[in-house]
Simulated scan of single mutants.
Amino acid sequence: MKAEGRTFIVSGGSSGLGAATVQDLLAQNAYVSILDRSPPSKDLESAHVKYFPVDIREVGQIEDAVEKTVAWTKETKAPLGGVVNCAGVGIAGKIIDAHNEPHSLDLWDFAIAVNLTGSFNLTRLALKHIVKGEPESGPDGERGVVIFVASAAAYEGQPGQTAYAASKGGLVSMTLPMARDLARHGVRVVTIAPGVFDSSMTANFSPKTRKSLENEGIIYPRRFGQPYEFARTVRWILETPYINGETIRLSGAGRLPGKL
């Protein structure tokens, strides 16, 4: 799919991997609807950008933002081309804590609501419009692309990541069946599972934790991933029609260690 002249909804687009994705889409002359709790920085201000304040846990707010995005596409003549689900939270809590108390149910619900249910709700509400769009010219007749953002923790979650890993693993598990559901509409579904990236989630890592991950968890390049590398992966997915129903690990061949 050509990003130019199309509109993409990016949740969590105001910072981190989402902001890098927005910047790269703008470089391709796309239009971007940012759904986030916080407004984007000034370097993302553009006639090609609309920001909608959204708590991804609130389905009413998501629906309102999607409807307003669709109205905007009618003004710009840039049809809705896809969704990039970057909104997410990182949480930690052992199933039985140091005081032998069970994992907080509120914390579990929060992780599932943001990382899994929020992505599902935004995607299903956007798809209502994407499947009605005119297909691209050519033999594939593509109408759109859905991208989910999972995590290496979906495969090898560390201690304290039971809820987080479950929320990200759910995204991996629904990628193929959703791709199969949407095949008749010409819509692809792909998930990216990043390893350790420089982002707001990792900014507070201690030097010891960071060094441990670089030395033990990452093979090559032995460093944290950079947001532009994530954004370039999104671009590759959009431009490569045969990528569908897959989860792509973006990890420098790294695997999260069992213990830091």
Rank of each mutant, 00 (worst) to 15 (best):
P241Y: 14
R223W: 13
M1H: 04
Q23N: 13
K94Q: 11
I243D: 06
K77A: 15
E45I: 05
S199N: 00
G5I: 03
G141V: 07
P227T: 07
R180S: 06
F197M: 12
M178W: 10
K74A: 15
I62L: 05
G18M: 00
I192C: 02
R223T: 12
V114W: 10
E142A: 06
G170W: 05
E45A: 11
R184C: 13
L256Q: 03
P79S: 08
V189I: 02
N204V: 13
E58Q: 14
K208I: 11
E134R: 15
F224H: 05
L182Q: 06
S33R: 00
V89I: 15
R255D: 15
Y242Q: 11
T202V: 08
A65Y: 04
V22R: 00
G186M: 04
P177D: 09
R255L: 14
R255M: 14
R222Q: 15
E75A: 10
G82N: 04
T76Q: 04
I237Y: 03
T7C: 05
Q161Y: 06
A253H: 14
A19N: 00
G118C: 11
I130Q: 10
I62A: 06
T69N: 07
G144W: 00
S15Y: 02
Y220S: 14
R222P: 12
N115K: 10
V131A: 12
Y228T: 15
D198C: 11
A19L: 01
T73K: 00
S167A: 06
V196E: 13
G160R: 03
R180L: 14
V70E: 15
R188H: 09
M1F: 02
E101M: 12
D43L: 09
N29F: 10
C86R: 08
I237A: 04
V190N: 02
V145F: 03
G16R: 01
F230S: 01
E216T: 15
V234A: 00
D140P: 09
C86W: 01
D55M: 02
I237Q: 05
D181P: 04
L105S: 11
A111L: 00
M178R: 02
F8R: 03
M178F: 03
H103M: 14
A71D: 12
L17P: 02
E134P: 08
T209L: 12
A165V: 06
T7N: 08
V32T: 04
D97P: 00
G245Q: 06
T240E: 09
V172C: 10
D181A: 11
V187Y: 07
D36Q: 00
V59D: 09
F110N: 11
F230C: 08
S206R: 08
P102H: 00
V10Y: 01
H48W: 02
S11E: 04
A87D: 02
T162S: 15
H185Y: 14
E134Y: 05
S173H: 13
K50W: 07
A78C: 09
G133M: 05
A111E: 01
P159V: 01
E229P: 04
F52W: 04
S199L: 03
I237S: 03
G12H: 01
I9D: 02
G16I: 03
L238A: 07
A19P: 01
T240F: 01
C86L: 00
A163N: 06
Y155K: 15
R57I: 08
K132F: 12
V70L: 09
I96D: 03
L238R: 00
R210H: 07
G169E: 04
D43T: 13
I112H: 04
H103D: 06
A47V: 07
G195T: 09
D109L: 08
D43A: 05
S200G: 15
